[in-house]
């Protein structure tokens, strides 16, 4: 099974890090779309089929919480699996975000931590056998 993924983060470096981890995760991805804010992310979701979204919270124009609220209120994509990747540490805000039926990965994160959450959320783990391009339990490979 292969996934279409949306990565919404205003940092190009963070998007690249996340995409690299996705590619090393052993899961199969068809298309990986990038958005620099929540509005761009919603535009992509309007036009493309996406199976999984990774969303930052602090973004300009439209932040991640607003983007998630829009998604959950739109019946066509309301069930989209979402992973929030954020520095947010305030206990109440994190709890509020979690109530939107999302998984939460705190920055900084290890590649393996993100991979685990992806596997939890998608229920798919088809790790590629060995080789340089796979993430092992032993830690990051980059």
């Amino acid at each position: 099974m292969s996934f279409n993924v949306l990565v919404a983060d205003d940092s190009a470096v963070m998007r690249s890090m996340i995409i690299r981890i996705l590619r090393l995760s052993g899961l199969s991805f068809s298309e990986i779309y990038e958005a620099t804010n929540g509005r761009d992310g919603l535009d992509i979701l309007d036009q493309k089929w996406v199976d999984l979204a990774l969303v930052d919270i602090n973004m300009p124009i439209m932040n991640g919480e607003e983007m998630i609220d829009h998604i959950r209120n739109c019946k066509e994509i309301a069930d989209l699996p979402i992973i929030v990747v954020s520095t947010e540490s305030n206990v109440d805000r994190v709890e509020n975000i979690r109530r939107k039926n999302v998984k939460f990965v705190h920055k900084p994160f290890t590649p393996e931590a993100l991979r685990k959450v992806i596997v939890q959320l998608t229920g798919v783990s088809n790790e590629q056998p060995g080789g340089e391009n796979s993430l092992s339990e032993g830690g990051p490979d980059f």
């Binding site: 940092s11 470096v13 602090n58 520095t87 947010e88 305030n90 206990v91 920055k107 900084p108």
Partner: peptide, 27 residues
């Protein structure tokens, strides 16, 4: 990309340090 990496590092350090210094209940 170097500038973006520096901004992101500052952002992550700030986002992680403030709640621990001032308390996780502070917004």
């Amino acid at each position: 990309m170097e500038e973006d990496a520096l901004r992101e590092a500052a952002n992550v350090i700030c986002g992680n340090a403030l709640p621990e210094i001032y308390g996780a209940k502070e917004v």
